[in-house]
Design a protein around this nucleic acid. Structure first.
Lengths: 187, 187
DNA sequence: TGTTATATGTACCGATCAGTAAATCTAGGC
DNA sequence: GCCTAGATTTACTGATCGGTACATATAACA
């Protein structure tokens, strides 16, 4: 079991794909930036698409772990966690090198709904929806499913608005909206 | 003044880019799908980037005209128009071949904020924000700028959620949220 | 009839694309 | 010391990329 090299490749590819895009990044660029030979890459992944799918799996794990932990650190109750999601997003948007959501970009570059990369991106969003719906249930909200979907629409909208860069602080705007929605869904 | 051929090219390129993506569409594919020779294309546009910028200008004009007219047709008062935006979005999402927002995709494929394609995409969003803010002012809303930004975050979120396809009817969810936000901003 | 602007087809450019072949190097297990 | 497995470099494939050269065709206008 030598997990090192393969994981190192996926980690480096994630950074390059995020910074440079999927289609715009050639395998030769990955060789140059990761220091791993092309032959080794194709030993681990049969195609570029397989590598991208592995990158998205890693990103899904990293992002959900980070978001859920940050929401818990910032708030005590489930209801407060729903609002704290937007404080966590603001931290993310302010990071240098922020370039939007990797899954939105993936499904934008591979836009056919039947494409494996598109489907796996949609899976990530489904898992987020499941978690937020659970939180809304724990918080005793009325219609937790609908509230979760509304909050996640705010989240996606804030992510793309922050990436477009035409607005000062979309996380703050989304948070203000979220507070009203949560209040209106409280019993 | 012969506007025909050039406009025909831009119109055809718009369809192909929207269906197939920007980077994934080569100039040879545009030749095949438009029936216009490559030499003529490069007479009208010096680079592929110039053609994309012209396509985005056309799309901006088409989309804003369509959205504003549809909002007016569906509602009488400015306040009702704000809500009707989400009914118009639902019509759009239900169209066959819906593939998300062209400007989100453009800024996702050309993600550097200093890139002309990214900047022009942000301009489109700025013009939408200006129009919605005006409507919110005409409707006598409190803090019309903040309400407009919130509604537009809902719009962008619904657009990407509809494209991901993991949710049934994001336009309906966004509309329900918008109704609450407008109500809370009413004097 | 001659001029000019715009269109065309075809063939090409160097660079890059994803992916492969083959020979060599390196390290750990026995 | 030897064997094996994984990693390496180098060179290569055919296809496609954005963009160009060049010679020709068409049609309006003078």
């Amino acid at each position: 079991m030598r997990p090192t090299k393969r994981d190192e490749l996926v980690q480096k590819a994630l950074q390059t794909f995020y910074r440079n895009g999927f289609q715009a990044t050639g395998m030769d660029m990955l060789v140059a930036e990761s220091g791993i030979s092309k032959t080794s890459m194709y030993k681990h992944f049969r195609t570029k698409e397989d590598l991208i799918l592995a990158v998205l799996r890693l990103r899904d794990e990293q992002f959900r772990n980070w978001l859920y932990r940050r929401m818990e650190e910032k708030a005590g109750t489930p209801q407060q966690q729903l609002i704290a999601m937007f404080d966590a997003l603001e931290e993310w948007f302010d990071e240098p090198g922020y370039k939007g959501c990797m899954f939105i970009k993936a499904s934008s570059e591979y836009q056919d709904a039947s494409h494996p990369i598109h489907k796996q991106s949609a899976d990530h969003k489904r898992m987020l929806e499941s978690h937020i719906t659970n939180l809304a249930e724990q918080a005793g909200m009325e219609n937790p499913g609908a509230l979760a979907r509304q909050l996640l629409i705010l989240k996606e909208g804030a992510i793309v608005t922050a990436h477009m860069g035409h607005t000062d602080n979309p996380a703050k705007d989304a948070k203000a909206a979220a507070i009203q929605l949560v209040k209106n869904h409280s019993p």
